[in-house]
């Protein structure tokens, strides 16, 4: 598999005021080329730190990282023009206008001046180009940050929690943007602690906790994996749930109650309807319970948060691509 980003045993310890804080503990992950890759982990799990290491902003203690096959940070200058990144939150000079900020950045990479107007237009900021950055709303700041990454026409876009603080419309805009960039064949690496977000936009995902990889692979595979860990289930709505529960239990199904519904463990929903119909009970509603990333994620991180190192290793499932 072609990878856009690969890290092997990346470690980072911050030293601040004498105290050591291990932020990333031997992270090995791979981001496939093209499409949206989620980088999921709870707060403080080391997502931002990893991104900073990829961009050469912080120096790893040990381990290696590469972007488009070039070792970073050593060969970063050779790939940086293909990488656009927004780390944590957009950071521009507040007293300068949007345009001034972009003109400086364009100058830094030798981008032609007219590219500034193009990206302002592309991010629907053309009318606000002469306004000071300080007066921008959060959504506009985010757009300007995206405009800045586009100055390079990058092949890899790294967005660190890009929807933080945005309203629903803004969140949707950012998501659609990432999807459309992914659809254009670019690689989008988006970090988030929000599962729904990753589930909605990402094709593949790396899940980390406490600075190391917990799971990695296609989102659908990870969900499938979580499904396999518990058996497949269906949610059944019937007129008399109590009787139905007895009937199903008698037929050997595992049944739990959920708000007037029954949750029945089975691989074959037809068996459930057949069993109930045989006793004169008719199914009003039957929905397969799809395992979501959230339960997979919580299962993984709960393990990880509470467990010893051994537990953590046991809880780790690594998809293809990780070292």
């Amino acid at each position: 598999m072609d990878v856009a980003v690969r890290t092997v045993n990346l470690r980072k310890t911050y030293l601040s005021r004498g105290s050591r804080r291990v932020a990333v503990t031997g992270l090995s992950m791979a981001v496939p080329l093209g499409g949206v890759h989620g980088f999921l982990g709870p707060n403080g799990s080391g997502k931002t730190t990893t991104i900073r290491m990829l961009l050469g902003l912080v120096r790893a203690d040990s381990g290696t990282a590469e972007v488009f096959g070039e070792a970073v940070p050593k060969r970063l200058p050779h790939v940086i023009d293909r990488v656009g990144a927004i780390v944590e939150s957009p950071k521009f000079f507040p007293a300068f206008t949007a345009r001034q900020n972009l003109v400086l950045l364009a100058g830094a990479i030798g981008s032609p001046r007219q590219r500034v107007d193009e990206v302002l237009e592309a991010t629907h900021l053309r009318d606000r180009g002469r306004d000071r950055y300080a007066g921008f709303s959060l959504g506009m700041k985010q757009r300007l940050a995206i405009a800045a990454t586009l100055l390079k026409d990058p092949d890899l876009l790294i967005f660190d929690e890009p929807t933080n603080g945005l309203d629903p419309a803004g969140i949707r805009e950012v998501r659609d943007t990432m999807k459309s960039l992914g659809a254009q064949g670019k690689t989008v690496l988006v970090s988030s602690h929000i599962l729904a977000e990753v589930e909605q936009v990402a094709d593949t995902v790396s899940i980390i906790g406490h600075g190391s990889l917990l799971a990695e692979g296609r989102v659908s595979d990870i969900l499938g994996g979580a499904g396999a860990a518990g058996a497949a289930q269906v949610r059944v709505g019937v007129a008399s749930p109590d009787r139905a529960a007895e009937v199903l239990a008698a037929d050997g199904f595992t049944v739990t109650r959920d708000d007037g519904y029954l949750v029945v463990g089975t691989d074959d929903p037809a068996a459930v309807t057949r069993s109930l119909a045989g006793h004169g009970l008719y199914v009003a509603e039957l929905v397969p319970v799809r395992p979501d990333l959230e339960s997979a994620f919580l299962a993984l991180t709960a393990d990880e948060g509470l467990g010893s190192d051994a537990d953590r290793a046991a809880g780790r499932r690594t998809g293809a691509g990780a070292a």
Binding site: D81, G107, G110, P112, Q114, A122, L150, S180
Partner: peptide, 30 residues
């Protein structure tokens, strides 16, 4: 719905040229 118009590729159709040291000083001076 997207922040970026589909045609966000550079119309100028060329990648950044890179900057010389003097060019970078110029940007800083600006």
């Amino acid at each position: 719905n997207t922040l970026v118009s589909p045609d966000s590729r550079p119309r100028t159709d060329r990648r950044p040229q890179g900057t010389s040291l003097a060019g970078l000083v110029g940007v800083e001076l600006r």
